[in-house]
C-alpha cells in the first residue's frame, strides 16, 4: 500500500497546503467553497460543519457520475467487479487514516502528493481547460465529501 506513495506525507506538500486553504477562502467561484484549514496532512473539522452519512457516502463513492472511486480503487464491497488499480486498495483505509486525513485526501490529494493522479474533489482554482458544465464547481459538494469521509471511516 505505502509502496505506491499515496499515503506518504511529503514535507513539500505542507507548504502548499497553506496556500490551498487561502485559495479556498477567497474563491470567487460560482459555487463558493466552504473554507477549511489544513493542519499537518489533515483537515480536522468537517467542511461547512456538515455531518456525513455513511450510506449516502457509499452510494456517492460507487456512483460513476460522482465519486467513481472504483475507476482507480478496489473497495471491500462484495459484487463490485472490475475495480481499477491505479490507486491503493481502500480496504482498511478507516484504520490507517483519521477522518481529517481522509478529508484532505478527498479535497485535494495533490497537497499530500503533488504528482498524484487522483483528482481534487473539492477544488475549483488552479485548474486548466475545465469543461463548461463543470467550471467553477467542485467534483463533490461539501456535504458529499463529508458523506464519503463517513463511509471510508467505516472501512476498517
Amino acid at each position: 500500500m505505502g509502496a505506491r506513495g499515496m499515503i506518504a506525507v511529503r514535507a513539500a506538500g505542507l507548504g502548499s497546503a497553506l496556500v490551498l486553504a487561502a485559495f479556498a477562502v477567497t474563491s470567487a467561484a460560482a459555487t463558493p467553497l466552504e473554507s477549511f484549514a489544513v493542519a499537518g496532512d489533515a483537515i480536522g473539522t468537517p467542511l461547512g460543519g456538515a455531518t456525513g452519512d455513511v450510506s449516502r457516502g457509499r452510494d456517492i463513492a460507487l456512483d460513476r457520475g460522482k465519486g467513481n472511486c472504483l475507476i482507480c480503487h478496489r473497495v471491500p464491497i462484495e459484487g463490485e467487479l472490475f475495480p481499477g488499480d491505479v490507486g491503493p486498495d481502500l480496504s482498511g483505509i478507516g484504520a490507517r487514516l483519521t477522518a481529517g486525513q481522509i478529508r484532505l485526501r478527498l479535497v485535494d490529494q495533490s497537497v499530500v502528493t503533488p504528482l498524484t493522479l487522483m483528482p481534487s474533489y473539492y477544488r475549483v482554482d488552479g485548474l486548466r481547460r475545465v469543461g463548461d458544465q463543470f467550471r467553477g464547481k467542485p467534483v463533490l459538494t461539501a456535504q458529499e465529501i463529508e458523506d464519503v469521509v463517513a463511509w471510508l471511516q467505516t472501512l476498517r
Partner: peptide, 21 residues
Amino acid sequence: QGQLNVACTQCHDQSVGRKLR
C-alpha cells in the same frame, strides 16, 4: 487539464498496464 485535473502522461506513461475499471 479538466475538472479532474489529469494529464495524458499520468495515465499513458506513468500508469501503463494498470487498470481503470
